[in-house]
Design a protein around this nucleic acid. Structure first.
Length: 520
RNA sequence: GGGCGCGUAGCUCAAUUGGCAGAGCAACUGACUCUUAAUCAGUAGGUUGAAGGUUCGAUUCCUUCCGCGCUCACCA
C-alpha cells in the first residue's frame, strides 16, 4: 500500500505539471473523427502508398496501454473499445511543449491525438501525431502488462480494471448483450409484449426457493424480493395479455456456486391457448436462434466438449432415468417402478448402493424422490440440448396435471452442459386445484421445507376470474450466456457478482482514522 | 456449513531439512528521433494476510482468526 500511495502522489504531481503546460486536467469533451475500431476496419487493408495520397487526417482518443520513449520520439498504443492503435510522437512534429507533455504521460492515461495515418518500417498502421490533448489521468498503476490481472478476487472486485486489461472479458459481456437482444427479437417476432412486474412482493411466489426480506417504512410491512415473476405474469394473462414476457432479475437467498448467484436474470414468457408442447417448440427455437445470433453458428465449445444447438433430444423424466441408469446399479428400471412410492424407494436404494449417497428423506412425497433420483442419475449426462418432460406433481405446484396420469404434470425442463437452463409447463388454471396444491405445499412447509410455496389468496382469486389455457416458460439467461461463451462459472457472466464485503482494514479505515485524529 | 488448497513488492511469481527475502514487469534517474514484452546503465520499493506459540533463528513448523479459490450438500 505505501508504494501505491507513492505512485498516486507522484502522478498527482505529474498532473500538476501537465496543467502547467497549458492542458486542462479534467476537460469536458474531445471531438474525434474516428473511433479506433473504425480506423482499424477502414485502413488496415491500405498500403503505405495509399495512406500517403491522399493523406488521411484523424483525431482519435484512447487509453495508453503501452508507452515507449526513445530520447526525442516515442510510441504508444491507445486502446478504445478493447482495440489498440499505435501512435508515433516525434519532438519535431509535436513541438517542445507537446513533447514535454508526452514525457509526463503514464500507462493508463487518456489522451486525444490529431495527426495522419502511416505505416511504420515494420508495417504497423500508426498515427503520426501532430498534436496531443490530455484528457484524463490514471492515478493508480494498471496491472503488469504481460501477465495482466489474473487474481480472481481482484477481477471481480475491480471489474473496471479487469475490463481494461482483459479483452476476452469484454467479449463475454458484448455477447451477453447480443443474447438479450436476440431473446427480445424472437419474443417480439412472436407477438409477445414486454412488461415489468413487481420485484418487491408481499408473498414470494412462483418458484420454490428462500427469499430475501426487506421492509417498507411508511406502510410498515415486510416485503420479499421476488424469486420469480410467474404469478404476476399469469395475472396479466387473466387480464387479457395473451402473450407477455419479462427479462429481469430474480433473487434467491441460497448458496453461491459455479451455477448460482443470489441475483440472476430470467426470461419468462406466457402464451394463452398454448400447452407445454407448444412452449417446448418455441423455446427450442428461441435458444437455437440465440446461439446463432451470439456465436454465428450452431456449435459451441463447452470445455473439452462441443454443444450442437441444432440437434435436440426429448425424453420424459422417466425415460431419462432409465436411459442413464448406471450398469453398476443393476437392471434398468421399468416404467412400472415409478407408479408406487415403494418402487421408487427401491430404485433409490439400488442406486445408492452403487453410488455416492443421494440425499433423500423417506417421509417426503414419492414424486419429490423421483425428481431427486432424476438429477442424481441423469443430469451429469445432459451435455447436448435436451428437453426433459413430464415432472412429478409433487414438485410442480403450478403445473397442469397429465389427464391420464395425475401424479405427473405437463412440465418440461431444458438441459445443456449439465445445467438446467429452462423450465416450462402447461399452466394450472383451475383455482380449486391450485388451492389444493398450495395446501399440499403448506404441509411440506410444516414438515420443515422452508422453500415450499406459500398460499397466495390473491392469485387464486385471479384464477377464479378465469385464466385461459396457457403455457409458460422461464429461461436462465446467465446460464445461457455461460454456455454460449464457454464460461464455467456464473461470476464470469455477471459484471458485478456478489462478493463478501471488502475488508476495510487497510486504506479506507486508515483514512477515516486519520480524519478523526485531525478532527480531535 | 463440511473437506482440500492458497495468501511473499503495485502486478506475475521465486526462496534447498528451519539459516542474510529475490527476479521480471510497473515506478524513479540518465542515454537513445521507427519502437512494439523496446534496449542499455543505475535507484528505490517488504511488519512475507493478522495474532500467538515452538526455536539460538520462522516466509518455511504448530494453534487461532481473516480473506480467496476449488469441491460437497440446499438451490436455477
Amino acid at each position: 500500500m505505501p508504494l501505491d500511495e507513492n505512485i498516486y502522489e507522484l502522478r498527482r504531481q505529474k498532473l500538476k505539471a501537465i496543467e502547467a503546460l497549458g492542458q486542462i486536467a479534467y476537460r469536458s469533451k474531445y471531438e474525434v473523427t474516428n473511433a479506433i475500431p473504425q480506423i482499424l476496419t477502414d485502413y488496415s487493408g491500405k498500403t503505405a502508398e495509399q495512406l500517403e495520397n491522399p493523406r488521411v487526417n484523424v483525431r482519435v482518443a484512447g487509453r495508453i496501454m503501452a508507452i515507449r520513449l526513445m530520447g526525442k520520439a516515442g510510441f504508444c498504443h491507445l486502446q478504445q473499445s478493447g482495440q489498440r492503435l499505435q501512435i508515433y510522437v516525434k519532438k519535431d512534429a509535436v513541438g517542445e511543449t507537446g513533447f514535454e507533455l508526452y514525457k509526463l504521460l503514464d500507462l493508463g492515461d487518456h489522451i486525444g491525438v490529431a495527426g495522419y495515418l502511416f505505416r511504420t518500417r515494420t508495417g504497423e498502421l500508426t498515427i503520426h501525431v501532430d498534436e496531443i490533448t490530455f484528457l484524463s489521468k490514471d492515478l493508480l498503476p494498471l496491472p503488469e502488462k504481460w501477465h495482466g490481472l489474473t487474481d480472481v478476487e481482484l477481477r471481480y472486485r475491480q471489474r473496471y480494471v479487469d475490463l481494461v486489461m482483459n479483452p476476452e472479458v469484454r467479449e463475454v459481456f458484448l455477447k451477453r448483450s447480443k443474447l438479450v437482444q436476440s431473446l427480445r427479437r424472437t419474443m417480439e417476432a412472436h407477438g409477445f409484449v414486454e412488461v415489468e412486474t413487481p420485484m418487491m412482493q408481499p408473498i414470494a411466489g412462483g418458484a420454490v426457493a428462500r427469499p430475501f426480506v426487506t421492509h417498507h417504512n411508511t406502510l410498515d410491512m415486510d416485503l420479499y424480493l421476488r424469486i420469480a415473476p410467474e404469478l404476476y405474469l399469469k395475472r396479466l394473462v387473466v387480464g387479457g395479455f395473451d402473450r407477455v414476457y419479462e427479462i429481469n432479475r430474480n433473487f434467491r437467498n441460497e448458496g453461491l456456486g459455479w451455477r448460482w448467484n443470489p441475483e440472476f436474470t430470467m426470461l419468462e414468457y406466457y402464451q394463452a391457448y398454448a400447452d407445454f408442447h407448444d412452449m417446448m417448440d418455441l423455446t427450442q427455437q428461441l435458444i437455437t436462434q440465440a446461439a446463432e445470433d451470439v456465436t454465428g453458428g450452431t456449435k459451441t465449445k463447452w470445455g473439452d466438449q462441443e454443444i450442437d444447438w441444432s440437434n435436440w433430444q426429448r425424453l420424459t423424466m422417466r425415460e431419462a432415468i432409465i436411459k442413464f441408469w448406471p450398469d453398476s446399479a443393476g437392471a434398468k428400471p421399468e416404467m412400472s417402478d415409478f407408479t408406487s412410492g415403494d418402487g421408487i424407494k427401491k430404485l433409490v436404494e439400488r442406486f445408492n448402493r452403487s453410488h455416492s449417497q443421494m440425499a433423500y428423506d423417506p417421509g417426503e412425497p414419492a414424486g419429490k424422490t423421483t425428481a431427486s433420483l432424476f438429477e442424481a442419475v441423469a443430469e451429469e449426462h445432459l451435455t447436448q440440448p435436451t428437453i426433459i418432460y413430464e415432472f412429478p406433481t409433487a414438485v410442480s405446484p403450478l403445473s397442469k396435471q397429465k389427464p391420464d396420469e395425475p401424479d405427473w404434470t405437463e412440465r418440461f425442463e431444458i438441459y445443456a452442459g449439465q445445467m438446467e437452463i429452462a423450465n416450462g409447463f402447461s399452466e394450472l388454471n383451475d383455482p380449486e386445484d391450485q388451492r389444493r396444491r398450495f395446501e399440499a405445499q403448506l404441509k411440506e412447509r410444516e414438515r420443515g421445507d422452508e422453500e415450499a410455496h406459500q398460499m397466495d389468496e390473491d392469485y387464486i382469486r385471479a384464477l377464479s376470474y378465469g385464466m385461459p389455457p396457457a403455457g409458460g416458460v422461464g429461461v436462465g439467461v446467465d446460464r445461457l450466456v455461460m454456455l454460449l461463451t464457454d464460461s464455467h462459472t456464473i461470476r464470469d457472466v455477471i459484471l458485478f457478482p456478489l462478493l463478501r464485503p471488502e475488508k476495510s482494514s487497510s486504506s479506507s479505515e486508515n483514512r477515516s482514522e486519520s480524519q478523526t485524529d485531525a478532527e480531535k
